[in-house]
């Protein structure tokens, strides 16, 4: 059943990263569909965002990401299907679903003629927050205090983006949904936002991140869903989507000798050479054992890592574009 806020708060303080079975998922989407005439923008999409995860929500332009996010937040009427946010059905209880949710969807939507601070004061007032410190804290969180009195319209893209994020954080939400948060930010700004996302997750919050910068998603996200043409293509833990758990690759001084040696170890399913890399199909938790056995047998092990695929290659393969020459590993 649905955990109460107190239970979740307790779970949060005892365990930074919540197990998905400990509390209700942050978001449960079931068969969510949106038709515009004969065009199906979102087509029976179902996925679950585990509580405490950093969830990458990905898809090419026009895949239906924003429409799906909009339906989940009650900003767009659905054609069919359901969504539950923090345990509340958005169609029967939208106010409770949104009460602990902060979101920036599509772009930072704020008043251009008002200062950054006045915008936040207005939103805080509408949200029933009367403590002025909350506004100042939100400004500090995104490093905008120095420019808080300039109008939103005069901000650079990056500053607008940061104020939009501050607006999403204003109600101290348990669930934060950010659509392209690093758009227009310079590298330091991008890193600040990534650090902010990690901080939010470390304090037990759930973050849904939609981004086109896949190296960024790969770096921060624990879970991922990819949609294309309105349909869910894949979803799951990042490491499962990237298949990093079922094989390892080893860089060793005598690869031709290493292959038969490793083949004889227990639990190893398959060993083969890719260029000079020894690729071993085995549960990644055996990496330490294999490494020790190799060293004991006199091999020089230079590198040892779970088989890594780039999210970008996986994404482009799943959404129908060929992987880039030379930059990608083959799938076996």
């Amino acid at each position: 059943m649905i955990a109460t806020l107190q239970e979740r708060a307790a779970a949060r303080s005892s365990n930074g990263h919540l197990q998905s079975n400990a509390v209700a998922p942050a978001i449960e989407v079931e068969e969510l569909t949106r038709r515009f005439g004969s065009f199906v923008a979102v087509d029976h999409v179902s996925f679950t965002v585990p509580s405490g995860s950093i969830f990458g929500f990905l898809g090419p332009n026009g895949a239906g990401k924003t429409t799906a996010l909009g339906m989940m937040l009650g900003l767009i009427p659905r054609s069919s299907g359901t969504a539950r946010i923090l345990g509340h059905d958005i169609h029967t209880n939208l106010p409770d679903a949104l009460a602990r949710t902060g979101a920036m969807v599509e772009k930072p939507a704020l008043y251009p003629y008002m200062s950054g601070r006045d915008n936040l004061r207005l939103w805080a007032y509408l949200a029933g927050i009367d403590d002025p410190k909350r506004v100042e804290r939100a400004l500090q969180e995104v490093d905008l205090t120095a420019r808080a009195d300039a109008t939103f319209g005069s901000y650079s893209t990056g500053m607008k983006q940061r104020l939009g994020i501050a607006t999403a954080l204003l109600r101290d939400p348990d669930l934060v949904i950010l659509d392209e948060p690093t758009n227009g930010l310079d590298p330091a700004g991008q890193r600040e936002i990534r650090a902010l996302i990690r901080r939010l997750a470390a304090s037990g919050r759930t973050v849904v991140l939609s981004s086109h910068l896949l190296y960024e998603v790969q770096e921060v996200c624990t879970d991922v869903a990819i949609i294309n043409h309105g349909k869910l293509i894949t979803t799951g833990r990042m490491q499962d989507v990237l298949h990093t758990r079922d094989s390892i690759e080893i860089q060793v001084d005598r690869p031709l000798d290493a292959v038969p040696f490793i083949e004889h170890l227990s639990d190893v399913e398959q060993v083969h050479l890719v260029d000079d890399l020894v690729v071993v199909t085995v549960d990644a938790s055996f990496a330490g054992v294999i490494n020790r056995k190799l060293i004991e047998a006199g091999f020089e092990v230079t590198g040892l890592r779970p088989r890594q695929r780039r999210l970008e290659d996986e994404f482009l393969a799943l959404t129908g574009l060929p992987a880039q020459n030379g930059a990608s590993d083959d799938t076996d």
């Binding site: 979101a103 704020l110 509408l126 607006t167």
Partner: peptide, 14 residues
């Protein structure tokens, strides 16, 4: 056009 109606909705305004 500014999309601020969404921000109002997100802040709990019906």
């Amino acid at each position: 056009s500014w999309g601020t109606i969404r921000t109002m909705l997100m802040m709990g305004a019906g």
